[in-house]
Design a protein around this nucleic acid. Sequence first.
DNA 1: TGCGACATTCGGTATAATCGATTTTTGCCG
DNA 2: CGGCAAAAATCGATTATACCGAATGTCGCA
Lengths: 306, 306
Amino acid sequence: MTLTELRYIVAVARERHFGRAAASCFVSQPTLSVAVKKLEDELGVTLFERSAGDVSLTSTGERVVEQAQRVLEEVQVVKQLAEQGKDPLAGPLRLGIIYTISPYLLPCLIPALRDKAPQMQLLLEENYTGRLAEMLKQGEIDVAIVAEPFFETGVSTLQLYDEPFVVATPKGHPWEKLKAIDANQLAEENVLLLSPGNCFRDHVLQTCPDLNRESLPAGSLQRTLQGSSLTTIRHMVAGGIGVTVLPITSITAADDALLSIRPFAGETPTRRVILAWRKNFPRTGAVEAIRQAVLASGLAGVSFLG
Amino acid sequence: MTLTELRYIVAVARERHFGRAAASCFVSQPTLSVAVKKLEDELGVTLFERSAGDVSLTSTGERVVEQAQRVLEEVQVVKQLAEQGKDPLAGPLRLGIIYTISPYLLPCLIPALRDKAPQMQLLLEENYTGRLAEMLKQGEIDVAIVAEPFFETGVSTLQLYDEPFVVATPKGHPWEKLKAIDANQLAEENVLLLSPGNCFRDHVLQTCPDLNRESLPAGSLQRTLQGSSLTTIRHMVAGGIGVTVLPITSITAADDALLSIRPFAGETPTRRVILAWRKNFPRTGAVEAIRQAVLASGLAGVSFLG
DNA sequence: TGCGACATTCGGTATAATCGATTTTTGCCG
DNA sequence: CGGCAAAAATCGATTATACCGAATGTCGCA
């Protein structure tokens, strides 16, 4: 049984005439006649009563033709679904973002994306880099915004922007008088870090390797005061518990009252934020739209890599 | 788009592996691979994300495959309908019968048919021969039981039985003493006839051509007392208005009290009852079942022609 | 008994489906 | 970094199918 055969019998039922049915299917009359016979043989039933005068349906034929029409309608739906799926900007996109970017980028990104791809609704997933990588490869998310380093097989990436780090101290801290902070100075203070799993914690430790030394006493503040989020850490710093390193996009106007922000001395440590997606993810248009939206989002203080 | 292609993508979605999907479709892996690609090209969308590890569905792919399954289910229904239609004894059969046979044959025929073809429900149409012929050719009925003469192009017939005619008079009528009635005698009496259109009226007129003579006065009883049915005529005869000719199958035990029934003298006039159906009507099994049922019905007084 | 209208059958041909073998891709691992 | 293994894509050849035009068969009709 083929869809063509079903189309033929529907045409014959409609036209009640093999010749006209053939014409309406743009095939020769013998072609249609043979195809109908073949289908009748396959089904083992006579669908049409042929006679010189006119063609009429058997009762089985009526039912079969009606059902054939239903099949053809469902086929049309397949085509419609495919048509709808053609636009890479249409339909939901599952986007994963790490915790230290999400709250600062999304408020800028979402309006920009609404502008570029209004049909594409975002399903957001906030998580650690490692978990996002896993979800990406499992197909649980389509695209991820993470920070380097990020190497995963089967995953393509694209640079988005480089984000400088800054030092945050409580108001009135002695470092307030300094114009810039040397990375090596940090070890002198209680440096509040995110909990393990956050890649930004690793970035900070990389910036100031001294913080990582195992010689720190077991109960030291660096160990115990690990914040669960940058916001928590920010409040702890404001409370005078210590200092911290923040990505510049996380600095808001409200911080002015609570914190003192200072740049690093010498080469500014940064992290590189990238876009990642499965190499085989077909909606490249959607990926590009995300990239464009990030570049157009106007995040303060970062150098875009578009 | 072909049904085969749809089966292939459903298999790939099920197996999540081109090779296994190909095996489950009993085709080679390249065959399935190119078929899927062809469908993707035709639809203009990517349905599967291929990678070394595993195959996964795009969101469009998920929708399309689901719809493809629906198509295949509907195709299965086509096959089921055809399967049901295979038995010629299954499903309704539209049977037409003339007025002068229907009330006497059906009570015998229907039980016999229930026995032979319990799955076949009869849709009955009672009408004149001419109308039944028309309906038969139009496909409004499938089979007809009529009396000869019956010649219609495109219609096949089969003899069922020959039915003798008898003369019915009121109780106490002088002819009651006669053993048999000569056809020519009828013209001496008021002979009650069915209204025109009933073939049995023509049979009676043919049996006794004298009744047909145009010399009858305009208001004569033969003209005015045309019964609408054999039952009506029977009651009129019982009421003493005249005599009539009846087919023998219409005689019931109840008639004994009201009427006097006499055979014809000489060659008994009869009518031949036949089965008729469109030459192209495919359910020959159903036609044969009807014939068998009539022959098995045990109608009194007729000679079967099986 | 031809005639017309139509369905069916018949050869021949172009297209498509399919296969086995091969190549390419890709992740993986020493 | 280079070979290995797995899987999909590609290739070349073969087979099957769809289709056409022409011829043939069927049937009702005049």
